[in-house]
Nucleic acid binder design. Structure first.
Length: 423
RNA sequence: GGAGAGGUGCCGGAGCGGUCGAACGGGUCGGUCUCGAAAACCGAAGUACGGGCAACUGUACCGUGGGUUCGAAUCCCACCCUCUCCGCCA
């Protein structure tokens, strides 16, 4: 959510920021609502002040047995005007909020210009694309041949975009998630959390999933939402809080299933388990101060990169351009992993600094060590990393000509010492 | 699911429909005292949105949303949440 005062202070700058996202200017319309809201509010407050004075006079007069009829008549007349002004003010405010809440975050000045992913910038790459002496297979070919990845059963019991993993592949998924959690909690200073997978409107709104992206979420019969990422509950820890600066940063991690309707992606990535309605992900969330958030963003991204490096995967860091940066983010790095079977780079992590965008929506603040007044927090989120896609990457990267898959060293202790997944 | 109790400021906890943004206690911050500290004493301190160059000032906020009233923390209704007991249950 944007600060209306920022719009007032620099309407042209506000519109210019929207233009970077390819959006039309709105400051004039927003400010029109803002002005009518403030005019009505000022008038309303004058009436209220008079009303309060009258009520006080009546109280005094009643105690002294005086006549209050004239005062009461004036108060009743005032009440009608106040009702009208109140309606005007709240309608203007609702209109203003409705315009602001669907606007994406302001981009960091360093974010590259560009309309789509073709303008993203590869910042660096780790490892070289592996050379195979045979034609590498895609993960679903490997998984089905191993008899450990079953899309038919998943479709039967749930539908499309679900996967059943069995045996060593099911265990590999579990090993990946648990190993990642251990890495972040034991070496990166994150606190593990076990969180609700169903959330309310308020936190979904605060993390900018509502109102604009409701169709991407699954809704429960009692009006809650299945989390599309643990970012939602973890960031929600800060909702309506005033955190002492000394307690910051909060670094939180969780391994959860994530649920996405994939409403807008019909026909895309239909084979295999690349794009699912349900997938496991280890999420990293940092809640910090404005002056620390840029450094925290770099740190968080390195934590995610470490996961890929230790697994032995080939990856690269991509700086998303203006047109590809998500709604809530001011700045985003995607981590892409090389999938030899598919012969393509695919996103496996996305690390974003939302600055105070989410904090404003959820009213999450901190109390500065020095100085007065509470300020909005900065919130960051990143995948550390997507477990389902990590499974795919491991399978495709470490596949052997016979269709077996070597288990990365770091995972073997989590796989009961298993070194190779074979038929 | 049934029955009951309750939600007030950082915390605890008062609060006959009018002078309540809210007693009192604790904690916090500043000061006095002290070599320093403790104790004691004095004082300060909520959040948001308006108006004003500013000093300052107005309004709203006692779980949330409605209602009654000239006037609501206080009365009425709905909802949310917490606690206790019973039932069911991983």
């Amino acid at each position: 959510m944007h600060d209306i005062r920022a719009v007032r202070a620099d309407p042209a700058g506000f519109d210019a920021a929207l233009a970077r996202r390819g959006l039309d200017p709105v400051s004039a319309a927003v400010l029109a609502h803002d002005e009518s809201r403030r005019a009505a509010q000022t008038a309303l407050q004058e009436k209220q002040a008079r009303r309060n004075a009258i009520a006080k006079e009546i109280g005094i007069a009643k105690r002294q047995g005086g006549d209050t009829a004239a005062l009461e008549a004036e108060a009743v007349a005032l009440r009608d005007e106040m009702v009208r002004l109140e309606a005007t003010a709240s309608a203007a405010e609702r209109a203003q909020v409705a315009m602001l809440e669907v606007l994406p975050n302001t981009l960091d000045p360093e974010v590259p210009e560009g309309r789509d992913e073709s303008a993203n910038i590869v910042l660096h790459q780790h490892g070289d694309n592996p050379a195979f002496a045979f034609t590498p297979k895609q993960h679903f070919e490997l998984g089905e041949a191993l008899g450990l990845m079953d899309f038919a059963t998943a479709a039967k019991i749930a539908g499309s975009r679900f996967t059943v993993l069995k045996g060593a592949l099911a265990r590999l998924e579990r090993a990946l998630g648990h190993w990642m959690l251990a890495l972040h909690t034991e070496q990166h200073g994150y606190t593990e959390a076990s969180v609700p997978l169903l959330v309310n409107d308020a936190v979904a709104y605060g993390t900018d999933k509502l109102p604009k992206f409701a169709e991407d979420l699954f809704r429960t019969t009692d009006g809650r939402w299945l989390i599309p990422t643990a970012e939602v509950p973890l960031t929600g820890f800060a909702m309506e809080e005033i955190i002492p600066e000394a307690e910051l940063p909060l670094r939180l991690t969780a391994l959860t299933p994530c649920f996405r309707s994939e409403a807008g992606s019909a026909g895309r990535d239909t084979r295999g388990m690349l794009r699912q309605h349900q997938f496991a992900k280890v999420e990293l969330v940092s809640i910090t101060t404005p002056d620390q958030s840029a450094a925290e963003h770099e740190r968080m991204t390195r934590c995610a990169e470490r996961v890929l490096t230790e697994l032995g995967l080939v990856w690269r860091r991509v700086f998303l351009c203006a047109g590809d940066t998500g709604f809530g983010a001011a700045r985003t790095y995607d981590l892409e992993v090389w999938l030899p079977g598919q012969g393509a780079w695919r996103e496996i992590s996305s690390c974003s600094n939302t600055r105070d965008f989410q904090a404003r929506r959820m009213n999450g603040r901190f109390k500065p060590k020095e100085g007065k007044g509470n300020q909005f927090l900065h919130t960051l989120n990143g995948s550390g990393v997507a477990v389902g896609r990590a499974l795919i990457a491991v399978m495709e990267t470490f596949q052997q000509e016979d269709g077996s898959v070597l288990v990365p060293e770091v995972l073997r202790p989590w796989m009961g010492g298993l070194e190779r997944i074979a038929r």
